[in-house]
Design a protein around this nucleic acid. Structure first.
Lengths: 152, 152
DNA sequence: GGCCATGACTTGACGCTTCAAGTAGCGGCG
DNA sequence: CGCCGCTACTTGAAGCGTCAAGTCATGGCC
């Protein structure tokens, strides 16, 4: 069978380490400083940037890369904490809209600076602009090869 | 506060997508084709490459980036499936040794080709050797900045 | 207009991870 | 030689994600 060369294996293992440690670190910082997990942060962030701070569950699921079921559970918890509200779309009752509350917005506003600073210190500031650009491009190439059709 | 430029944000979001989808895809393929999760695969792989197919729980935890508790649960499940045995280190009863069984080795041998082929098709083969090398280097730089002292 | 298929969630059970307490072997110190 | 503390796990409960099975509104087809 077609094994990997040493150099390929080294690079791959570096990527594996990145995949395991970087999300972990991001999550730690958010949880410690703001009591939010990474996906929860993403949900609040996406809501805050949308027109009336409203988004459909399905759109949210898509942009946060979460399954609809996961998102439903997660938003229910956020709702319990008063950071988000849910209501059926008035125009079409099949859709559910998630709405960022003021409390949710404030929580996000409190979390964002520390989060961005953390991302900066781990990723942005340790690479040259060119290195960062290339990293993003390589990531895009890889992600584009992934078959995400098997979801739901 | 010091926000990110558009280019920085783009690259960062690409990295976020990589972190969420790549592990997911690897896991899917392993589970579907071999009934193993990514960490389970790593555990079997590490054991198979060590001298007498024996490793201490703590060493395994370190190389697989799992907490000792997680590893303990996970190895217990692997033991239940007959892929691994556990016994206290004869020389120092505080250590526990995990030992790959023949069945475990066969399971790994069955899983490896598909796994490698998948990694190849998603990562190795879509980047030039130079791009792959740079990706690994960037990953290393980032990982080296992560403070892992807060574990256990 | 009634029925049925479909799409968009929601729910509950199960599995895995984490977190906080345990347990247990050994080395050291009095 | 007996206790003490440390290290290396193990365990049980609680939280989160996934999977399969609901629910419920709508749109189309007769």
């Amino acid at each position: 069978m077609n094994w990997l060369t040493d150099a390929q294996l080294d690079s791959w293992l570096s990527v594996v380490r990145l995949m395991t440690w970087l999300p972990w670190s991001i999550d730690q910082q958010l949880r410690r400083d703001s009591g939010l997990g990474m996906v929860e942060y993403q949900v609040l962030a996406m809501l805050s940037e949308s027109p009336r701070r409203i988004m459909r569950m399905s759109s949210l699921a898509e942009v946060t890369n979460a399954s609809l079921s996961r998102l439903s559970h997660l938003v229910k918890r956020l709702e319990g904490r008063g950071l988000v509200r849910r209501e059926p779309d008035p125009a079409d009752g099949r859709f559910t809209n998630a709405i960022l509350t003021d409390k949710g917005f404030k929580t996000l506003a409190g979390a964002a600076p520390g989060h961005v600073a953390h991302v900066r210190s781990l990723v942005i500031d340790v690479l040259s602009p060119e290195q960062l650009r290339r990293l993003g491009l390589a990531a895009d190439r890889i992600v584009s090869r992934i078959d995400t059709s098997a979801i739901d």
